[in-house]
């Protein structure tokens, strides 16, 4: 960028050149269907988000977007596929916050630097859920009880070891000056098996996004005590934020965004970014997300990169303190 700024005539020249050749090379993009890799299973929340944004993006780009699920290994497999694809813009991926955590735990060498960010399309904050018959009715009561009762009398679940909901809750405890291991973490395969354990009495707390527990909450089996977000979310307006409940400004959750492999052509990235923003604003996407209760948050390519960098730092610190880092 710097060299171009200095050589203004040169810049103009390249622009001209680009304009001349772009009709042949770039305006053609996309000229065939695009593959969107999803690192989580068909039918899940991430998959649904991906399929919705894909159908909105199809309207913008005029090409089919094939959603391919590459599951397994807590997201390692799918993210590896995204990062190692040809950077020609025909293989993109829906990256999730796990790329900020996996490498700290020694699961993979991939970091956010191995991707070309295109745009962040969603952010779900972590909620704190307990069984409906639990004696605790506010986050404050729960936190106090964790502080007072002997170590290990509370058990938390919601995802695998070192997953986003594990770290979010551990981070909250540390924010409150409690050692993270006062609450025992029981790994599970996801939020819904954890909800079953919560109701059958095997564990005492589930940290996960609130929409993931919606049917159990509506069935009157589970109650949500609080959410680690800056303000209340529309779909669950009765759930107070952590700030309202205990006066902490702690925030945690899972971001999702569209990325490509490292080294993509900036022109293609710009095309995609513009199309993605339009798809993000479309009724298809916004309607779906609000119906689901999923949070929407837009960040363009540049801000998304900064966000990933920041979150990487935050989660690295939590992983370190929980004792999972390698």
């Amino acid at each position: 960028m710097k060299t171009i700024k200095i050589n203004k005539p040169f810049k103009n020249f390249t622009t001209l050149l680009l304009l001349a050749t772009s009709s042949a090379v770039f305006s053609a993009y996309p000229e065939k269907p695009i593959t969107l890799v999803v690192p989580w299973a068909a039918g899940g929340g991430t998959d649904a988000t991906a399929r919705t944004i894909a159908s909105a993006l199809k309207e913008e780009l005029g090409q089919n977007i094939n959603v391919v699920n590459r599951t397994g290994g807590s997201g390692v497999v799918g993210h590896t596929v995204m990062a190692t694809a040809k950077p020609d813009g025909y293989t993109l991926g829906l990256a999730t916050g796990e790329i900020n955590m996996m490498h700290w735990q020694g699961l993979t060498n991939l970091t956010y630097k191995d991707f070309t960010p295109i745009g962040q399309i969603n952010f779900d904050y972590s909620g704190i859920q307990v069984a409906a018959n639990s004696p605790y009715n506010t986050v404050q009561e729960l936190i106090d009880a964790i502080r007072e009762q002997p170590k290990g009398s509370f058990r938390n679940s919601g995802t695998g070891l070192g997953g986003v909901w594990h770290l979010a809750f551990a981070g909250l405890l540390m924010d409150q000056g409690i050692e993270a291991n006062r609450v025992k973490f029981i790994p599970s395969q996801g939020a819904s098996p954890a909800m079953v354990e919560l109701v059958s009495g095997g564990i005492s707390i589930v940290s996960s996004s609130i929409p993931e527990g919606r049917s159990m909450i509506e069935a009157g089996r589970v109650k949500s005590l609080g959410i680690m977000s800056p303000e209340r979310i529309n779909s669950f307006p009765n759930v107070p934020t952590i700030n309202e409940a205990i006066g902490s400004s702690y925030l945690a959750g899972e971001w999702r965004g569209i990325v490509g492999p490292k080294g993509m052509d900036p022109k293609i990235v710009a095309t995609l970014e513009k199309a993605l923003k339009a798809a993000y604003d479309s009724n298809i996407y916004q309607g779906f997300m609000s119906k689901q209760g999923f949070g929407v948050e837009w960040r363009n390519s540049k801000d998304f990169a900064k966000q990933m960098e920041k979150m990487d730092f935050v989660y690295g610190a939590i992983v370190e303190k929980v004792g999972l880092s390698k």
Binding site: G73, L107, P187, S188
Partner: peptide
């Protein structure tokens, strides 16, 4: 085979 669910060890 694969990542162990409990510990995340491959």
């Amino acid at each position: 085979v694969g990542l162990d669910m409990m510990s995340g060890t491959p």
